[in-house]
Structures are given as structure tokens and as C-alpha cells.
Design a protein around this nucleic acid. Structure first.
Lengths: 228, 228
DNA sequence: CGCTACTTTGATCATACTCAAGCCGAGTGG
DNA sequence: CCACTCGGCTTGAGTATGATCAAAGTAGCG
């Protein structure tokens, strides 16, 4: 019944948002209290898994992190790539709803999760960042939904290239992730991504140097047109 | 450069999240300060448009609201449906990044948006709700991305029926939205939605009474299997 | 009754997937 | 130094899923 939903929603408090104010240091914990200690991860190493207790959240110090969900039969959807300076792993409930993995070599810092109320009082800038990050991730997710739900393969790839170029603010992109990662991010297969890139290359919209891991945007206007 | 991104991210404050602490009542404003005055909307009426100044956020009092984005050629993606008690229209920047429309007859209350810092001090429960809502919307968006990116038509429809049944907590769903809305939410065409529903009906997984606007889930286990 | 809006159904088509093979650079060992 | 393998990427041929185009059914309403 609708009224029930209303009541449930209205009764949530900030304590419910981050419901685990950990009383003290626990013996088995990762070394990650306030200032956040660094952790290095190699390629494809898992930072946390879907279903893990969401006892920490994270910030990327260097490298790129992917967060993804996997269906029972192995189909994978990458929700987002997180680059240097971005936070990830922020949850409302008490477990992570997606897994996070290192795309290449990565350094992250983790923060012990605690009541947002306490956090807001003791460390307001960090609390702000957390809220801000959640809203940024929401905006990106909303933008990504229209890509996944309504755009064609070329439009998806073009959008991806433009977004990535915007984030690094250059016209030459050094893609840190594999074709498989790109495919799972764009909701396509690796073959379709590859074919689309070669088509864009044939049409002189992009150039893909020998190693195939960097991409030069030669005609951004055309890309913008193609991305709808 | 990555370091730039890091700096930008780190410098955001709560003031930047809700950057418009409106000093006083403005003459042209909607009557919507703190307790939030009600507004009624008829079917398909726009509550706010993409690009509108995000001066208020909203809560659904009755009815269902859809929030969506539209591509230049008219393709539409519905981000989410918001039912009674849920909040929507929460933004980080200063304009709405999607439009919100009434699915049927709807009553909403709007809240003047103000600095989250002020809000946290003056009205903590509301601040909590806002943050909580943002995180809930993020979770839903993440869940929806795997549907849009990786699921087949039957899986999408089955997931949609199960989710909707969960939200109303019954096995008979009175769908408030049209087939077109469902299609635009699931990233399908109206024809595919219709065909899929009749297929599920043929297979005795659901029943669709004459008016075609309510759906009875006859075999939830089968639906769960079909939704992957 | 006949309009309109919405939905269903049918036939055909296109886009992206699947399966399969080949290519290329890097690393390894003879 | 060359032959080999391995992983990631590209290319090709055939197919399937869902889109498109078109028409017919159905309920609501004047």
C-alpha cells in the first residue's frame, strides 16, 4: 500500500543512511580509520565484492577503478569507472551492492564508515564530499541509463569517447581499460565495440595508433553529431 | 590530468551541493517554503522540465511521477517512477537534469531548496531524508543499468513486474502507467512490451484482465527465474 | 453510433549478437 | 635470434532478437 511506503521513507534518518557507528577499532579490520591508509591493487584485483559488508568507503589515489554487477550467468554490467580523486563504494545499506576492481594498477585510500551525523559534526568537509559524490554518481547513472536504454552502438561509443576525453581534458585518450571493459560498460559485445571503433577510424573521426590502447579524436564535431 | 580532477572533487562543499541559499521569499516564487504546499497535477502534466532551475525539490503525496530524459530526435528514457511518499527532483547543480511529469492525477509537495548546511542544522530529519533519497535513487539507477545493459526483453518485463509487485506488496498490480511508459522505462518498444506480456499470459505466468491495466502475478517463482 | 486513444497482433527488416578464425605484440624458451 | 604460445583485439559469416511498419481490435466518451 502506498501509505506504507510513505511512512517507511519518512522514518529514515541519517543514522539509517550510515547505520553502523563502529564503537572502536576491531582486531580484524583493515588499517583504515580517519585519514585513510593507502592500499595498492594490481590489475583486476578486487577491492570489494558484491555483498561484502560496506564497512569502508574509498577514494582513488591513482589509477582507475571499475564498479560492476554480475548476473548469475556471468553477464556483467559496469556501472562506472572511477578515476583519480573520485570516491566510490558509498552505500545506504550495510553491504556493497556492486563489486569494485582495479582496471590497472591502482592505489586507493579507505575510510571507516560511520554515522553521517557524527561525520557531519566532526568532519564536515568529508561529509560534504560523500554527499556530493553520491549525487555525482547519481547524475552519471541517470545519464548512462539513456545511453543503455536508447542509444545505438555508434552513439554509445561516440558518447563514451567524448565523455572520456572531457574527463581527461585532452583529445588523445589513453584508455586504461580493455575492450571487454568498454563493452560491459556500454552494454555491447567486445566485437561490436571493435567494429564500431574501426568504422570511426575508416570515417576519419578518430585515429587508433598501433597498440590500440590510445585513441585520438580527430573530429569532435562529428563525434558529437554521432553521439546524438 | 588526473590530479586536476582530484582537486576539483576535493574542493566541493555542501554549499556547492545546494548552492543557492535563497535569502527570502521572492515575489514570483511558487508557494513552497518549508512545510511544503501541495500542488495537484493532471495526467501528463509537467512538474518541471529538463533544464529548469532546480529551485525546489518534491515529494509525492499521491499518484505516480515519472522522471525522464529525451534525446533530440524524441527517443525517451524514463529514469524512474516515484510513488507516494518518495522524494524526487534532488539535484547537485543548479538545474534539473531530467523532466518530471504526472503519470496520472498526482499531488506533490515542493520544498524550497536551500543550503544543505543550513538544512542540516535547522531541520535534520529533512536533510536525512534528502540524502537518503539520493542514495536510494542511486541504488535503483544502478540496478536499472544492468537491466538496460544486459537483460533480454522477457527478463526486463519480468523484473519490472516483480519490482512493482514488491513496491505495492501485492500480487495484483494496478499499473498506473501506459505501455509506452513501461517501454520507455525498460528501453523497449511498446510492441515488444505488449508481445512479452501476452507471451507471459499464454505461459500462465501472469493474468491480464480485460482492461489491460491490472496484472495478476500467477507464478512468481517462474517470474523470478525469467528475470534472471 | 462513431470518434479517439490505447493496445494487440502480424509481417518484414535491421542491428547487434554469436560463433569462428585470423592477427598482432609480448613474453618465453630453445 | 627465431619459433612458439598466450592474451587481447580485429574481422568475417550467419543468425536472432527486438525494431519498424502496418493493420486490426477494444474501451471510453461525446
Amino acid at each position: 500500500m502506498h501509505t506504507d511506503l510513505a511512512t517507511v521513507g519518512a522514518q529514515r534518518t541519517i543514522a539509517a543512511v550510515f547505520p553502523r557507528p563502529v564503537p572502536g577499532r576491531h582486531p580484524g579490520d583493515e588499517p583504515a580509520t580517519h585519514p585513510g591508509m593507502a592500499r595498492h591493487c594490481g590489475k583486476d584485483e578486487e577491492i570489494f565484492a558484491e555483498g561484502d559488508a560496506a564497512s569502508h568507503y574509498f577514494r582513488v589515489v591513482s589509477g582507475v577503478v571499475r564498479s560492476c554487477k554480475i548476473l548469475s550467468d556471468g553477464r556483467r554490467q559496469i556501472d562506472a569507472f572511477h578515476v583519480t580523486g573520485e570516491m566510490f563504494g558509498i552505500e545506504r545499506g550495510d553491504e556493497h551492492r556492486f563489486s569494485a576492481e582495479a582496471v590497472g594498477d591502482v592505489t586507493v585510500v579507505s575510510f571507516r564508515r560511520c554515522s553521517l551525523e557524527l561525520l557531519a559534526e566532526s568532519n564536515r568537509p568529508l561529509a560534504c564530499q560523500i554527499v556530493s559524490t553520491a549525487l555525482i554518481n547519481l547524475e552519471r547513472a541517470q545519464q548512462h541509463m539513456i545511453l543503455l536504454g536508447r542509444k545505438s552502438a555508434i552513439e554509445r561509443v561516440a558518447s563514451f569517447l567524448l565523455d572520456t576525453a572531457d574527463r581527461v581534458a585532452t583529445d588523445t585518450i589513453d584508455l586504461p581499460m580493455s575492450r571487454t571493459d568498454i563493452a560491459d560498460y556500454l552494454g555491447l559485445t567486445i566485437e561490436t565495440v571493435s567494429r564500431t571503433l574501426t568504422q570511426l577510424e575508416r570515417d576519419l573521426v578518430i585515429a587508433v595508433p598501433a597498440m590500440r590502447r590510445s585513441i585520438v579524436l580527430r573530429n569532435k564535431a562529428a563525434l558529437r553529431r554521432l553521439s546524438e
